[in-house]
Amino acid sequence: MNLFITKTMRYLATAWAAVKELRRVKLWWVPMTIGIAILLELLLSNHDSQPATKYAYYRYLVFIALAFFLTLAVGAKFFPRWREKLLHISAFYTAVFLALNIYHLATQKFGLLPALFFPSPGRILEALVVDFRYLIVDCLGSSAKLLAWGYFTGAIAGFFTGIAVGFNKTAAYWVNPLTRIIGPIPPTAWIPIVLVAFPTTFSGGAFLIALAVWFPAAVMTGSGIANVPNAYFEVSSTLGASRWRQIFYVGIPAAMPSIFIGLFTGTCSSFITLMTAEMLGVKNGIGWYVNWQREMLSYANVYAGLIIIAITFYLLITLLFRLRDVVLVWQKGVIKW
């Protein structure tokens, strides 16, 4: 009995030492996780519910990832900045590759999920590679054109509506009720009318997106200007600023933080509207691609499309954040959001 307790204690101490050791080698977590994934991929045989792919895309992915993170881990020995960065992202990417590995095992190796709706990572990658040109050039290109037209029309219209409402009482009297009635209607609810009223689905879609951006841009610009302390206008008038200069050099810069919130809200609802418009009416674009592939029951392509959408929207939002950091550099340390 005594011997048993001593043994258990010793095992526990060893396990604890191993955990401590693991924390010490945090730099190698990601390569280790990917290494396990590669081992499992090589040792376990594929489940036959998943159709075979032409090339072993999943292997390529994990080997490239391994090479990448090994380089980082080795480089961290020499560059302190790499080390800092890697220590920071290590836990996150360990979780990412762990999750990917689990999904890979559940689909490709053990067939635990229905193969039709849950294609293995290899099959999604194959769809992405095979359709890449079509996805980027045709679908994404068409979506980008529609989004750009709608977004900029809506943002500019919203900006000027907001300025008019913020500075002019008559404009506020007539426009405010309109924004309050039209604004809260989800732009996609207009689809039945828009599809009939507009000559092309493109112009209809652009209009819907513009509407989605216009409302938050107008409201936030207007309220931003209305909330500019009157004292700023008094100061500028005693400095000899004309009414015009007070609008463009005092009112608008002061309202800029609020205007950016409007643009962010508008961006998010423009994405929603773009996807819905493409799924319901417009006959091309990335949203249409996803819906089309769903109808064809090729879910690997659906996931491929979703990945493209996620990356694109992530990049666009990041771009807007960068733009805000440049325009609102004066806010650093004043307001955070």
Binding site: Y232, V235, L239, A241, R245, Y249, P253, A254, W330, V334
Partner: peptide, 28 residues
Amino acid sequence: AERGLVFQDPLLFPWLNIHDNVAFGLKA
């Protein structure tokens, strides 16, 4: 502009740096 006014709060324009704040009247 011939009658300058300074308030209790400095009321500098936060979006302009100090140089541009001072230059505001000249630009206007």
